[in-house]
Design a protein around this nucleic acid. Sequence first.
DNA 1: AGTAGATGCATCATCAATGTTGCAAGTAGT
DNA 2: ACTACTTGCAACATTGATGATGCATCTACT
Lengths: 187, 187
Amino acid sequence: MRADAERTVRTILEAAEQVLSADPAATMEQIAEAAGVARTTVHRRFATRDALIDALAAWATRRFAEAVDAVPVEDAPPVVALYQVTASVLEVKIGWGFGMTRASASPDPEVARVHADVQARCEQLFRRARDAGALRADTDLAWARRVYYALIHEASTGDDGKEPGVLATRVVDTLLRGFAAHPERAV
Amino acid sequence: MRADAERTVRTILEAAEQVLSADPAATMEQIAEAAGVARTTVHRRFATRDALIDALAAWATRRFAEAVDAVPVEDAPPVVALYQVTASVLEVKIGWGFGMTRASASPDPEVARVHADVQARCEQLFRRARDAGALRADTDLAWARRVYYALIHEASTGDDGKEPGVLATRVVDTLLRGFAAHPERAV
DNA sequence: AGTAGATGCATCATCAATGTTGCAAGTAGT
DNA sequence: ACTACTTGCAACATTGATGATGCATCTACT
């Protein structure tokens, strides 16, 4: 593939993530328009709509895996690692958008594997944090992970323009402390 | 309208909420199937797909408004009121699903008004909580509200079968305290 | 400069979803 | 029991999205 074609593919995928996360029923036309290319070009690169979506899932998964891999999780205290992972993930602008939600159902087993792998790393990180005493001993890890995902999603879709570091601080801070002034006697 | 027709409309709306929140691009056929009626019946009750979606937004908004109105927010300490509102909202099984996300963009000004009203009550509740010292003084109310919505959404879409009270406890607890064992020195 | 590859544009076929209608069978409310 | 309403079913027209193709133009790489 020529270099300009490679760029086009990336542009289309980014536009697709953007458009589809806003409206999962968006048409190829809308995606093409957002990418600034003709609709036929999209079809030349991705045979069918499903093929585009699968490619998007694979792409988003790869980017997230890279973001997570970039952090030496094992070498830092759990909470520090959590912050670094969060910042790294938020660095990837695509948000916890359309591509990621489809990754687990991808027909490509490799994609599903990578996605499950990232999920497992996340789970593991929370377990370490709990075992290290950073999280309460009775923490429901599945619930904690879901809340973590939701917070990342909120942070990534909200007011943009903020530094990833600032957003990561907000996410981790909220995840750990909540909003109460006196948490120990909140409930 | 006859009583059985009234039931059918409700069944369709509930099925639509269920199906569309799982897949916003779902077809009328899928909705009809989920409702256990013929597709033509859906079209008889809702002239167009948009009409169905608008009706769904109106219906969901009304149910949420009722759930919020059922709580005497002013008569209780903010945190207690927050818990009660949460439980009341979670009682309404539809989750923070498809209907609610469309309510703010509804063509019916009355629906938009009610939706904005609920939002304002929520905002107000958080402000009271902050002013009363229950939330930290530097709390970003918009962020807190978004996190609150996200938590309700997660709680309502997760493992079902749990009592609304249990879920509400989990939501409010997470919102206020987070997961840290020692919040005061978490960050 | 030359060539293979890439894009835009116009056009076409196909298909699935939408929306409509008529009719027969069933049911709520009197 | 009667009637008006409701539903299911089958058939149909319409529309919009999808996907394919041929051709002219342009551009990246050698």
